[in-house]
């Protein structure tokens, strides 16, 4: 329970004024017994009100002093009830005189009244706690679900970022190698809008492909990479169809003069379909 929020709602002042329902009245009384903070605010407000009441002080007639002090009854060892506890909703007027008489004459009635009152208070506390626990449990469950979703999103974002970082790290390692030469693959035909790049290590003879801007493949086709060695095409493998793979390591190739990409049937061809050449670049 959010005690601070409960106090700030102003219900304690409303309770003192009697501006609360019967249920709220019992709630304030129960909660003030459970939460010291609520009790403190209630007592403090009561002190304010009683201090204010002193503003209306008026001396009683003098004869009452002796009348009262000379006729004090025996003091009770244990009180029948807390005489200060606010009773039921004061807007409901009930004649309690009969009940008061019974109370004095029959202790049995008192016993049952107390048993019933205690049972009621415990019942009220339990119902309230159950409701409160249920409500907080539902709230917590919702909150946990939201947090789980947020965690999942964060995890996905992290994985994407880690994968992108790995890709960039690999690319950086390749391009920063002084033995590696970049071969820009420009459009094979003027009206094509395609660009790629090959990175070729002349010492190790390893080739790396960076997809850059190749149009999406038709569903039954795949891009194939070629190296032109001694004027003859030699397949370097297929461009990965996997999404996000923009960078891949290829087979080694010796004495490449140029690199090209053609669009081939799925799985590739033994020789390039020249009319489907997309990009080409020569080794300087």
């Amino acid at each position: 329970m959010d005690v601070k929020k409960y106090i700030e709602s102003g219900i304690i002042d409303d309770y003192l004024m009697g501006f609360v329902s019967e249920q709220e009245r019992q709630e304030v009384q129960c909660l003030s017994k459970i939460y010291p903070e609520i009790n403190e605010v209630l007592r403090s407000s009561e002190n304010i009100m009683s201090t204010w009441a002193a503003d209306f002080a008026e001396a009683p007639p003098a004869h009452l002093r002796a009348k009262i002090l000379d006729n004090l009854p025996p003091q009770e060892d244990l009180p029948k009830q807390d005489p200060t506890e606010q009773k039921e909703d004061k807007s409901i007027l009930i004649d309690f005189s009969e009940i008061d008489q019974d109370k004095d004459e029959s202790p049995k009635v008192n016993y049952w009244s107390y048993a019933a009152a205690i049972a009621f208070i415990f019942g009220a506390i339990m119902v309230w706690q159950w409701q409160s626990a249920r409500s907080s449990s539902l709230e917590m469950k919702d909150e946990m679900l939201v947090q789980q979703e947020q965690m999942e999103d964060l995890k996905n974002n992290y994985e994407e970022m880690a994968s992108a970082m790995q890709l960039k790290d690999g690319l950086l390692a390749v391009v920063s190698d002084p033995d590696v030469q970049k071969i820009v693959l420009g459009p094979a035909k003027e009206d094509m809008n395609a660009n790629s790049a090959m990175y070729w290590n002349k010492v190790t003879q390893k080739a790396y492909f960076h997809r850059l801007a190749l149009p999406a493949e038709p569903s039954d086709s795949q891009y194939q990479l070629w190296a032109i060695v001694d004027g003859k095409p030699q397949s370097l493998g297929m461009v990965s169809l996997e999404e996000n793979v923009a960078w891949q390591e290829l087979s080694t190739v010796e004495g490449a003069q140029a690199f090209a990409i053609t669009l081939e049937p799925m799985g590739g061809s033994e020789s390039p379909t020249l009319e489907n050449m997309m990009v080409i670049g020569t080794v300087s």
Binding site: E46, M49, L72, P73, E76
Partner: peptide, 25 residues
């Protein structure tokens, strides 16, 4: 007087306790 022994000075201020008795009566 009758309820005097039940008064708990740790729970309430004497004056406020008495005013509450007066109000309730």
């Amino acid at each position: 007087w009758k309820a005097g022994k039940s008064f708990d000075p740790n729970k309430a201020r004497l004056y406020t306790w008495m005013v509450n008795i007066a109000r309730n009566t």
